[in-house]
C-alpha cells in the first residue's frame, strides 16, 4: 500500500483490467492513454465541462476528477461499452436523428448522462432532461436539439 504505483483491478466495460497507476493518475488518463478508450474527452480537466463523464458503479461521474488508484474493485462503463460494436443505443440513435451532434466533442458525455437518466427515469419531462444534462457543456450550443433527442429516445420517437 505504500509503493508509488498501485495495482488496481477495475472492470471496464465488462472486462476486468489490472492497471499499475501512480497515486495522482486520473481515470481519464488511464482510459485514454492506457486503454485507448478515447470516447471520454479531456475538455477542461477541472470537472466543469462534462466531456469526460463515465459511469462509475452505475453513476455518471467525472473521470478527470477520479483517481484511478481509488477505484480498486469498481465498475466503469464508457461510451464504448454501452452498445455492442457497430450498434447504437436509443439515445445515440436519437442524437443522430435530431441533429444533436455537431463537432461531437461533448457527445459521449451527453450520451452517458442521458443514458443514466433513462435508466432511472424512463419517461422524463423536459425539466428532468435539462437537469440531467446541466453539468455538460456543448460549445456548439446544440442544447435544444440535445434535449429533444433525449425526449425522443425516451418516447421511442412518439413525441
Amino acid at each position: 500500500m505504500t509503493t508509488k504505483t498501485q495495482d488496481v483491478t477495475v472492470t471496464v466495460n465488462g472486462a476486468a483490467r489490472t492497471l499499475a497507476c501512480a497515486g495522482t493518475t486520473t481515470l481519464l488518463t488511464v482510459l485514454r492513454d492506457d486503454l485507448l478508450l478515447t470516447g471520454a474527452k479531456r475538455g477542461c480537466n477541472q470537472g466543469v465541462c462534462g466531456a469526460c463523464t463515465v459511469l462509475i458503479d452505475g453513476r455518471p461521474m467525472r473521470s478527470c476528477l477520479t483517481l484511478a488508484a481509488n477505484l480498486d474493485g469498481a465498475e466503469v462503463t464508457t461510451v464504448e461499452g454501452l452498445a455492442p460494436r457497430g450498434e447504437l443505443t436509443r439515445v445515440q440513435e436519437s442524437l443522430l436523428k435530431q441533429n444533436a451532434v455537431q463537432c461531437g466533442f461533448c457527445t459521449s458525455g451527453m450520451v452517458m448522462v442521458a443514458h443514466d437518466l433513462l435508466q432511472r427515469s424512463p419517461d422524463p419531462d423536459v425539466e428532468e432532461v435539462r437537469d440531467a444534462l446541466s453539468g455538460n457543456l456543448c460549445r456548439c450550443s446544440g442544447y435544444r436539439a440535445l434535449v429533444d433527442a433525449v425526449i425522443d429516445a425516451a418516447t421511442g420517437g412518439a413525441a
Partner: peptide
C-alpha cells in the same frame, strides 16, 4: 470525493506527497 482536490492537482495548485 476528489471533486475539488483532483481538480486542484490537475491544475498543479497542490501536489500532495501522500494521499
Amino acid at each position: 470525493g476528489g471533486a475539488t482536490l483532483v481538480a486542484m492537482m490537475n491544475a498543479k495548485l497542490v501536489e500532495p506527497d501522500v494521499l
